[in-house]
Design a protein around this nucleic acid. Sequence first.
DNA 1: TTGAAAGCGCTAACAG
DNA 2: CTGTTAGCGCTTTCAA
Lengths: 353, 353
Amino acid sequence: MESPRAPATLADVAEQAGVSRQTVSNAINNPDLLRPDTLARVQAAIDALGYSPNHAARQLRTRSSRLVGLRLTPSQEFTANMAMDRFNRSLVEACREVGYHVLLFSGGPAEEGQRPDPLGGYDDLLRSTAVDAFVVTDTYLGNPQTSGLARRRAPFVAFGRPWDDPGARHPWVDVDGAAGVRLATEHVHGLGHRRIAWLGWEPGSWIGEDRRAGWHAAMDDLGLMTAGLEAAVADDVLEGGRAAAALLDVEEHRAPTAFVCASDTLAVGARGALADRGLVPGRDVAVVGFDDSQVAQVLGLTSVRQPLEAVAVAIVRALTDLLSGEPSPAEGLLLAPSLEVRASSGSSDSERA
Amino acid sequence: MESPRAPATLADVAEQAGVSRQTVSNAINNPDLLRPDTLARVQAAIDALGYSPNHAARQLRTRSSRLVGLRLTPSQEFTANMAMDRFNRSLVEACREVGYHVLLFSGGPAEEGQRPDPLGGYDDLLRSTAVDAFVVTDTYLGNPQTSGLARRRAPFVAFGRPWDDPGARHPWVDVDGAAGVRLATEHVHGLGHRRIAWLGWEPGSWIGEDRRAGWHAAMDDLGLMTAGLEAAVADDVLEGGRAAAALLDVEEHRAPTAFVCASDTLAVGARGALADRGLVPGRDVAVVGFDDSQVAQVLGLTSVRQPLEAVAVAIVRALTDLLSGEPSPAEGLLLAPSLEVRASSGSSDSERA
DNA sequence: TTGAAAGCGCTAACAG
DNA sequence: CTGTTAGCGCTTTCAA
């Protein structure tokens, strides 16, 4: 159990077990090639010496690092940050199960004034063969780096659809935001709400448009009006509050009785606007957020939750397919989110019209 | 700019530049050994071929992976999670600046019923020489793994004091929680508050005791009474709310006018208790949280903020010292947090007694 | 200042 | 089924 200064090598194990180095290598990589008794002897020597194959040597020989690169994006919105943390954990765990590790890197500081290099950090890792593949997550504003990576023939899987490039042929996994918002909309509809407002982001983000589309489609399918029930603002509590206030401050029979929001941040703003008017979320007016962030959990806010554990597993599967040269069965995979129902959308006891 | 299927090697560069392989190696690792014109020629070849040294080969030769291992803990409390995300980002960035990358790993699933192996995941990485060192972060409940790592002579730096082992001789960096709470206490005192309550965790956590001690010492120094102004509960909104309510529901001249809390979660609970009584945080009663989490930022909650960027930088410095064999200048380093003042502790216009 | 030789620890390919 | 040979790409001697 003592730990030697210099870790044991294959040769040490071979000597200890009285076999050749190659046999030890086989014992590890192709155990079925060995006779059971030889295997047992080698195993015993491995255990006795506490041997683990030297990572660098193996990598050099097999040209595989069993490392997946993941770039940490500088820092997104509050809510997205929290989601990324959950995703990272899931990814590490999913990778572990197939014998991979996650290598974190950053794109370096964004140069003053200019946009950060979309490929910053990727290139070096690629050329030094430090990682086998990448997981690309920051596709929320289009995919500047996926095309670059594809051009370099770098193996990668994206978390996020190639919104701006339907012809992209790389594997990806994404969460169906529209379906999530539809879930939220139908949920409050089931509670009796009919004037269901959408509190969304300013146009221009793919994700934002997708989520809004989910609301709009759900409203259509439910035969509900959407006119005058919509706001688009920056992802900010104050802005969200103001927008919600503006929607509320109309004749009472036209005011929304439910808010479905593009983010938990906006939902918090809506909550505030309600409180200012003496309305109680969940009793008087329903509020639903998006991302099931810490705020949602702490404030009892109903929220759409992305299945990030499943996303990570799917990404790792796509990654292993990719690296084993298999023809990827599906180009892209869209996963459905779920709804975490909390007090902010408590069941209503009376129908509303 | 085209990327070749097989990355360029040292030999390719040497041929292109018309020098020996060794000269190219020197150009990269000891540029001052070369004549300027040779260096320039080699540099040009490197750029032309887009060469980066093969990571595995270099690692095999130099016995250094330039990788730092960081174990992702299963999942802590809400608030700590968010902090860890910020720390991870900072660590990745600090590592990048000294040419290191961060390798994420997990301890594996905790076996049903039994506590997770404190050294889970560490051993393999160590013996396979996959990482040069570790950053150990989950020291919040004592340091089960630091002693094990020390015994194995694994280089590591801890984020967190060796609470339970004053004789530990490994380098560490920590945030002075007591000083943070003192800051908070003095802040509300400066606002005119005199009956300042502590809403803390149940005894048993080192960090919790430390934070509480900060409140107690500050109160003593300010000549304020602490009797009947203290509660200890689990880190949970409901529990925090109940405890705050109990503290508030006494004769008015004995009720606290300020709450200093061990976490943002508890602070949210306190806020709720205030709202139930028609009291407005920041106007009637001050509330201060801890960790400057998303909730604090979104709700306008004054909170103690840990200097995680500085922690990461200090850890990386300690790490490089350690790996370069320098005698670590200081065994441990304690960093002071700051206070993010927000609406929940707005300045009071009238003195309170 | 530059070049030649050796070898880090491992596994792929073949021979026995 | 086991052993031998060769070499992945790099850096560390040591010579020129």
